[in-house]
Amino acid sequence: MSETTATPAVRTVAVIGAGTIGLGWAALFASAGLRVRVNSRRPDAEKHVRAAFELYAASLPSGPADPEELASRLEFEPDVARAVEDADVVQENAPEDLALKQELFARIGAAAPARALLLSSTSTLLPDDLGAAMDDPSRLLVAHPFNPPHIVPLVEIVAGERTDRRAVDDAVAFYRGLGKTPVVLRRPVPGFVANRLQSALLRESIHLVREGVVSVAELDEIVTASIGARWAAVGPFRAFHLGGGPGGLRHWFEHLGAGLERSWAGLGDPPVDEATVATVLAQADEAFGARSYEELAAERDAVQNAVIAAAARARTAASPA
């Protein structure tokens, strides 16, 4: 197995919570050679994590791994304070409940070493709110991954008013050492960036399905055969910069920018009511229901890894010497 190189100072990571995100983080950390201490309220936590490693071991970015070798780096500690007491990094993945997370971070902050990075995978909550009950939240950051976290490179780093700048730098170095792409947001914003973009596309997707323009399966095919493939190569701004020809984004705005507000006004604003949900779910069952979650996830992960690897090779080949 080819291992990713983690930051040399990091040896032990405490993973708080063993849901989908926590499991992906645990697999990635173990694949980097780190000791992974899992804290979970599940009575069957060890069985649950080992089963996930059987699924994830084949799709790690560093290459297929032996699930048993990965699992040999696992420890299980049901007590939060003991789980973090000598951790270099704490990756919290509890449910999106502010009171729960505030209580967790108060306990984590009191028990973890002063040097430890305290990182939350939250997709909705801001660091100042998460650390409101802590005596010292200077090492607390949001580190929001894009699912599945053991594959998709992005980690959105969000600091609070009381976050030490060195903690931001340490978090960036930690994730880069794992082969991730950390991006530090310039200021906190609800939902962060990637999920806001995803939500905007999902809203219009639901609208088009609800209006009978396309089916769920057809919409997915349109995205993967057009903007999905494009966005694997370039982001929205560079795409439209190239769409403007030699004049770039400036030329594009001059010729097409005037119609943007009119096109935005025509976008859908669908209600997420019982009828809408029933329509989407019926079509999703028809499109995806014949295959298990494990089959669909394995295919997604294999294709995602192939796309990321191919894009990286192409960028390296195209870069000036």
Rank of each mutant, 00 (worst) to 15 (best):
R230N: 03
V172C: 09
V280T: 12
A275E: 15
V303C: 02
V183I: 14
I21G: 00
Q198N: 08
E85V: 06
P67W: 07
R300Q: 05
D66F: 07
A290T: 09
A111W: 05
P190M: 04
A81I: 05
R262Y: 15
A278Y: 06
A173Y: 06
H150I: 00
S2V: 06
D269N: 15
A287G: 12
A116R: 02
S226Y: 05
D79Q: 08
H144T: 09
S123F: 12
H241A: 13
G160H: 11
L100V: 13
H251S: 13
V272A: 15
T7D: 11
P270G: 13
N305R: 14
D129W: 10
N305E: 02
P236M: 08
V209M: 08
V36E: 03
V10D: 01
T224W: 08
I21Y: 00
D88C: 05
E274H: 15
S292C: 03
F288A: 10
R162N: 02
G109P: 11
Q102M: 04
P95R: 07
R315L: 06
T276A: 11
A318K: 07
K47I: 07
A233C: 12
F146K: 04
F53R: 01
A282F: 05
R210D: 15
P113R: 13
V193S: 02
P113G: 05
S72E: 11
A94M: 11
R313Q: 14
G22T: 03
P246H: 09
R262V: 13
E92T: 09
E69C: 06
S138A: 12
F253W: 15
R262T: 15
I227V: 15
